[in-house]
Simulated scan of single mutants.
Amino acid sequence: MKVILAVTNDIATDRRVQRIGSTLLRQGADVVIVGRKRKDSLSISHLPFKHKRIRLLFNRGALFYAEYNIRLFIWLCIQPADIITANDLDTLPAVYLCCKLKKITAVYDSHEHFTEVPELINRRLIKKIWAWIESAIVPHIHFASTVSEPIAQDLQQRYHRSFTVIRNLPEKKIIENHFPLSFTFPDKPVIIYQGSVNIDRGLEEMIEAMKHITSAILIIAGDGDIQHQLRIRVKSLQLNNRVYFTGRLQPDQLLALTQKAAIGISLEKDRGLNYRYALPNKLFDYIMSGVPVLVSALPEMKKIVQQYNIGVLIDEVTPEAISQAIHGMLENTELYKIWKQNLKIAADQLCWENEEGLVIELYQRAGLK
Rank of each mutant, 00 (worst) to 15 (best):
L92W: 00
I326W: 09
Y286W: 12
R36G: 07
R248K: 13
K173C: 04
Y286F: 15
H212R: 14
H111P: 07
G290I: 05
I151C: 02
V312M: 14
H228D: 11
P319V: 12
I304P: 09
I345Q: 13
L97M: 15
V234P: 04
L257P: 07
I141C: 01
V107S: 00
N309Y: 07
A321F: 01
R242V: 01
H228E: 14
N241A: 05
L298V: 06
L362K: 03
L358C: 03
H140G: 03
P251S: 08
Q349A: 08
L101Y: 15
D14E: 03
R123F: 03
E176Q: 15
A62G: 06
Y308F: 15
S145G: 04
D30M: 00
I199Y: 07
R365N: 13
T258C: 01
D40K: 15
I54Q: 02
R231I: 08
I70T: 14
V3G: 12
D285C: 06
S22P: 05
P93G: 05
E134H: 05
N87W: 01
F143C: 05
H160D: 01
K127Y: 06
D315S: 10
D270C: 00
H140Q: 11
N9D: 15
L155C: 00
I78C: 13
I207D: 09
V31I: 13
E331M: 09
D30P: 03
R60A: 07
Y336N: 12
Y96S: 01
I338F: 02
I121P: 04
K102S: 09
F245Q: 11
I326N: 12
Q253I: 04
T246Y: 08
P186H: 08
Q259W: 03
Q157Y: 09
V3D: 10
Q341A: 15
L203M: 11
E356G: 04
L249D: 02
E268M: 10
L313E: 12
L255E: 14
T146L: 00
R271A: 14
E171S: 04
G247L: 09
A221L: 03
D88I: 13
E355W: 00
K369G: 11
R271M: 15
A29G: 02
E208H: 01
K39I: 11
I192Q: 03
Y65D: 11
R158D: 09
L237V: 08
I121D: 06
